[in-house]
């Protein structure tokens, strides 16, 4: 079953696991210490993160070692950038609307020259 990446990261415990794994791959025991819940809970969350593609596991003897996979983070970043573009465009229009209103009615303060770095 494929899990929505945003749903996978919606849980604060899973976000703590992801944060812990940013330091590098780790066995579940070390994650339990950092995340502060029982191993069964950490294992359950790890399974969900694996199904969503954020985490990969490999066997090392009897242990399983968990690590982050970069791909879903790259996709999330691209997706957020896309949404940001929508709002950048919206705020461009916001700025244009401000100027239009100033040209229609006297501004409450004397007009000042636009700062070229304003946006």
């Amino acid at each position: 079953m494929e899990i929505d990446p945003f749903l996978a990261l919606a849980d604060p415990t899973r976000r703590r696991i992801v944060e812990a794994l940013r330091a590098g791959e780790q066995p579940v025991g070390l994650l339990v210490e950092q995340v502060g819940i029982a191993q069964s809970g950490v294992s359950r969350h790890l399974r969900i993160l694996q199904e969503a593609g954020f985490v990969a596991a490999r066997a090392e003897g009897q242990r399983r070692i968990y690590a982050l996979r970069p791909e879903p983070f790259i996709e999330l970043d691209a997706w957020l950038a896309h949404y940001r573009a929508l709002w950048d465009e919206r705020l461009d229009r916001f700025g244009q609307a401000l100027l239009a209103r100033r040209s229609q009615a006297p501004a409450p303060l004397p007009p000042k020259p636009e700062d070229p770095d304003a946006d």
Partner: peptide, 25 residues
């Protein structure tokens, strides 16, 4: 990935967009 529009994304870090204009609040 989350290009599936049938699913509402649930959460993650907020997006913050900031602009400054020569205008009053």
């Amino acid at each position: 990935m989350p290009t599936d529009p049938s699913r509402p994304p649930a959460a993650a870090s907020p997006i913050v967009i900031e602009r400054t204009w020569a205008a009053t609040p």
